[in-house]
């Protein structure tokens, strides 16, 4: 699924290993305490992005998460088992649905508009971006889009048992973007296209598609060590961003935030193509220009 678009990034933020002081973003101490870590990370990064863009009114909020709100899901599951289904506290059940983040942001902003959440492995964030691009093509102007995942200790342990950490390092994080249909003087970059490839594409096929997007001084930020090395061998500048983000389904959202920072730091780069591949899941490509 290839979608051409022009999504102007007016603000972007990401949170991963270094969590901020959440008091600066979520003043209500009770609310802060009730929120699981993934909700806090997501809400705070959305606020950072909104502050940068000086926008807090949207036509839509779209989010993506591969793993969903794991901590709350597990907490409720544990309570069912340990309390033998009696006298359960509904808070973690309420917060276990994947749309909790999008809903919390809407609640915080008093936003009555379109609100949607995609939960499709490593193309969750790209599904949300596809929705954002569709919304803009339908005449909407401002969309808040984000991706988030939390690596709980149980998830880490289970993925370890599955052998994941033999080749990959764990990661987690949240990243949010204020996207606009029109350019402004202070945008961080423009998303030109989003593509979700089919599951069975080989590394070479993935790289062939990515290579077609090269235009001027292009940097490939890859979410897979093999893709990065194939593109390097073909003579392109490419890096493996999973060394920084670690592996999680929406790592491409965090990487997109890093890519916007990179554009700001390095004036030589004209375009960044993000090529992601998550274990046994579809590859995705995001095309970012100045």
């Amino acid at each position: 699924m290839f979608m051409k678009t022009n999504l102007y990034i007016l603000g972007a933020a990401g949170i991963s290993q270094n969590e901020p002081d959440y008091k600066d973003f979520i003043q209500d101490a009770g609310l802060r305490r009730r929120m699981s870590r993934v909700i806090r990370m997501s809400v705070a990064s959305s606020i950072m992005a909104m502050r940068e863009a000086a926008v807090d009114k949207f036509d839509a909020i779209v989010t993506g998460t591969g793993w969903g709100c794991l901590a709350d899901t597990e907490k409720f599951l544990v309570s069912i088992i340990q309390n033998n289904e009696r006298l359960l506290n509904p808070s973690s059940f309420i917060q276990s649905t994947s749309n909790t983040v999008g809903a919390q942001i809407a609640l915080m902003l008093g936003d009555n508009h379109y609100n949607n959440t995609f939960v499709h492995g490593s193309s969750s964030f790209e599904s949300a971006l596809t929705d954002a691009a569709l919304l803009v093509s339908e005449g909407k102007h401002l969309v808040l889009a984000g991706g988030f995942d939390e690596l709980t200790s149980t998830k880490r342990h289970l993925l370890g048992r599955m052998g994941m950490w033999r080749e990959h390092k764990g990661g987690e994080g949240a990243a949010f973007f204020v996207l606009a249909s029109e350019p402004t003087s202070k945008q961080r970059g423009v998303i030109k296209s989003v593509e979700i490839l089919s599951l069975n594409e080989t590394y070479n096929e993935i790289c062939n598609k990515a290579e077609k997007l090269v235009n001027g001084n292009t940097l490939f930020m890859c979410g897979d060590v093999s893709i990065a090395s194939i593109l390097n061998e073909r003579g392109f500048k490419s890096e493996n961003y999973k060394e920084i983000t670690g592996e999680f389904p929406t790592a491409s959202a965090l990487a997109l935030f890093f890519a916007t920072e990179r554009l700001a730091e390095d004036n030589e780069i004209e375009k960044i193509v993000l090529v992601n591949k998550f274990i046994k899941d579809s590859s995705t490509v995001i095309e970012l220009v100045r």
Binding site: T97, G102, S124, S198
Partner: peptide, 11 residues
């Protein structure tokens, strides 16, 4: 199938 494939969860 061969087109867009995704999942939505808004409860």
């Amino acid at each position: 199938l061969n087109g867009f494939c995704s999942t939505i969860n808004t409860a």
